[in-house]
Amino acid sequence: MSATTFDAAAAARAWRPPPLIATPWLRYAVYLGALAYALLAVSTIEVNWTRAAEGVERAGRFLGGFFPPDFITKRSDILEGLLESLTMTVVATGLGILLSIPVALGAARNLAPLPVYLFCRGIIAISRTFQEIIIAIVFVAMLGFGPLAGTLTLAFATIGFMAKLIAEDIEDIQASQAEAVRATGSSWFQLLAWGVLPQVRPRLIGLSAYRLDINFRESAVLGLVGAGGIGDTLNTSFDRYEFDTAAAVLIVIIVIVLACEYASGFIRRKVQ
């Protein structure tokens, strides 16, 4: 034992908590680099203050046009757009989840062989690369204006989102549980149903609820490029300078998004 010669008190004084980046020169290079970048970035911003001041006044007038919100005059248009959006959302979410499950299985390295894995990861990458608006423009060009283009857009975006997150959850399952199911002589589909699904089900349900919520918000935006839904109603009211109706549409969107968010949060808490 070296207990007689080892000075624990001195060692304790000399001890420092380990830094985030262990190599000293790299640590200071990263800190200085970040500082220099921030200074350079701020110095290149040009602000035209007179233009900004005019803008504030114009924004005030523009927002003033929103009051009071008018739910009555275009009531049937708002209602129609709303129903269209909700239909798009539900159909697209359902379709997207259905299609995302096989992609997720293929994109989980612990279930799929390498070629299948790469193919499914490719689908996910494509779906996640393009922003919904871009996909919507393509679908509108292919299928014409209307909710069909919007629905397909949302379904396509749902595939990438769900498949990626579910695949990651599948890769994180406890292998021993799946192995035990395999050891009973189960078929591959039984392995999925008994060894994998019970482990990913809470995440699957939670993400589905979350995606429903996202899809409704997106459906409001997609209308701006003619892909149907309440976004169309909003766009039309702006085009006609009916800002009071636009305000009503915005309020409706806000209320529904809040309701969706609350509901999906509630569902996610319940299944955890």
């Binding site: 406890q174 021993s176 549980q177 192995e179 035990a180 199911v181 395999r182 050891a183 009973t184 002589g185 189960s186 078929s187 008994w194 060894g195 019970p198 482990q199 089900r201 809470p202």
Partner: peptide
Amino acid sequence: LRRARRRMGMIFQEYALVERL
């Protein structure tokens, strides 16, 4: 092989029960 596995029961170290079932 799946048919043959039915005749070999397996018991595991960490039990390996499907916990959510």
